[in-house]
């Protein structure tokens, strides 16, 4: 395996790099879209159930089906990484919109009312009080979405796009174990590291959550 890595370091690093951005870009895009959506689901209570149901349906579409059908819908090339990014963004939104809504709903109404009574206007209250208090729940969702995306990128290799999944396909084609092992180890390690990084961020930005009775951290 060392031998394989030595001979193919450029290919492996390239695959790793591609894997990282194919997985993380959708997390960022998805989060940016999910934040306002989740907020709307709380602000307008009648929107909450449609939001949750739509999310559930979107999340249940098999990834391969999405990878195959997106080019038809978007008019992109079958091999375009855009398909992967869009598909994973959809999953991320499906997961996080609900998480954001649930996080905001988990904020004790007494806390929100206290903020209102202190003289917070709606937007500042959201930024200064509601989102920070919902953060442990939201970050937990972000963790799940990130790890899920990292493993889903590998599926993209089946349609010929990117990331460490390429190493699997190559290994299968050549009846060669090393690339498969390297691919598996790296993608597991990547997921583990991403998970750890988010946990560390969570600790750093929500130091108060550790003391919360029955809290999430």
């Amino acid at each position: 395996m060392i031998q394989y890595l030595n001979n193919n370091s450029a290919v492996v690093l390239d695959a790793l790099q591609q894997h990282i951005w194919l997985a993380l870009l959708p997390v960022l895009l998805g989060f940016a879209i999910a934040l306002p959506l989740g907020y709307l689901g709380v602000r307008f209570t009648w929107l909450y159930h449609p939001l949750v149901n739509t999310s559930g349906v979107l999340y249940s579409i098999p990834s391969l089906a999405l990878f195959v059908f997106l080019p038809v819908l978007l008019g992109t090339k079958v091999l375009s990484p855009i398909n992967i990014v869009v598909a994973l963004t959809i999953y991320t939104v499906a997961l996080l919109a609900r998480t954001v809504a649930d996080g905001l709903r988990s904020v004790d109404p007494t806390v929100t009312q206290a903020a209102t009574a202190m003289g917070y206007r709606r937007f500042r209250r959201l930024i200064d009080v509601e989102l920070p208090v919902a953060l442990p729940v939201i970050l937990a969702g972000l963790r799940v979405a990130t790890v899920a995306n990292i493993s889903l990128v590998s599926v993209g290799a089946l349609i010929g796009v990117g990331g460490l999944g390429q190493l699997f396909t190559r290994g299968f084609q050549l009846f060669y174990l090393e690339p498969i092992l390297v691919g598996i180890i790296l993608s597991v390690a990547l997921a583990g590291i991403a998970d750890l990084v988010i946990v560390l961020i969570q600790r750093a930005v929500t130091p108060w959550a550790r003391f919360q009775r029955g809290g999430t951290a």
């Binding site: 009574a117 202190m118 003289g119 009080v129 208090v133 108060w208």
Partner: peptide, 23 residues
């Protein structure tokens, strides 16, 4: 103005309602 009015009135809410994320 609601917000300004409220900033000039102290409010102690039932069950304290402290902000959990702030010291």
């Amino acid at each position: 103005d609601e917000a300004k009015l409220r900033r000039g009135i102290g409010y102690v809410i039932q069950h304290a309602g402290l902000f959990p994320h702030r010291t």
